[in-house]
């Protein structure tokens, strides 16, 4: 029952999107929380991996069955927390389609590395494109592919992704100059924007190399990860 409901709302206009959010509030909340949590660990992890802050500033915690490195620096912690709390709100309100972390050289101001996380609502998961063309499918019983991933599977997929992020140091060029980082989001035009957030360009890397990493799906979201970086001349 629930499932067919989900599908109906997939052939939505913008209005029905909100209804959907109400009907599945609980599942969506959990899923959003999971994704936000993933972002938090990703930001920490990437800051550590890329040497934006010294290694002594990080401590290891067990998460996803891995040793995740999390900052212990109060300022950095507070900074990430501020970002995360707003991100959380947007996630629950389904306002966000991308989260981006950009590394910029302090001296040159060049963008040297860009981590992009694409968030898609999984409402119709696999059937999305086909159900558009043939609405009949909505009435058909849900196939196996529709089964939401179990907690175990999600954890496994996230673990695999983090391993990949860690392994990316093997191909990413060393950040030779001291870098700072920015966090961007791609939000819907009608999102509420607090004062601390402002419009920005995409801060893309010109002529950058792009590598797509693994994806993972929760009950409601699908997250794709991509890193782009400047090739050494």
């Amino acid at each position: 029952m629930e499932k067919s409901r989900t599908k109906e709302s997939s052939s939505r206009g913008d209005g029905s999107k909100k209804d959907k959010a109400n009907t599945h509030k609980l599942a969506l909340k959990g899923s959003s929380k999971m994704v936000s949590e993933f972002f938090e660990y990703s930001i920490n992890s990437i800051l550590y991996q890329r040497g934006v802050y010294p290694a002594e500033d990080f401590h290891a915690v067990k998460k996803y069955g891995l040793n995740m490195l999390v900052t212990s620096d109060d300022q950095v912690k507070a900074y990430i927390k501020k970002i995360m709390s707003q991100l959380n709100k947007w996630m629950v309100g389904q306002k966000i389609s991308k989260l981006v972390i950009v590394f910029t050289g302090k001296e040159t101001g060049d963008h040297v590395e860009r981590w992009q996380f694409d968030v898609q609502l999984n409402k119709s998961s696999k059937g999305k494109s086909s159900s558009r063309s043939a609405d009949k499918e909505n009435t058909a019983p849900a196939g196996d592919a529709e089964a939401p991933p179990s907690d175990e599977q999600i954890q496994g997929a996230i673990r695999a992704l983090f391993r990949q992020i860690t392994a990316s140091v093997t191909f990413l060029p060393e950040l030779t100059e001291p870098c700072t980082f920015n966090v961007l989001v791609y939000a819907d035009a009608d999102s509420e924007v607090p004062v601390e957030w402002g419009d920005s360009d995409a801060k893309e890397i010109d002529g950058g190399e792009k590598v797509k990493l693994r994806s993972f799906s929760t009950t409601n979201h699908r997250v794709d990860t991509m890193v782009s970086y400047k090739l050494d001349d």
Partner: peptide, 20 residues
Amino acid sequence: QTRILAFKPAAPESNKPIDL
């Protein structure tokens, strides 16, 4: 339909030297 938003406050600076 989408806006790109940036978190405006600058990230905290790290003064310590970093050896990757």
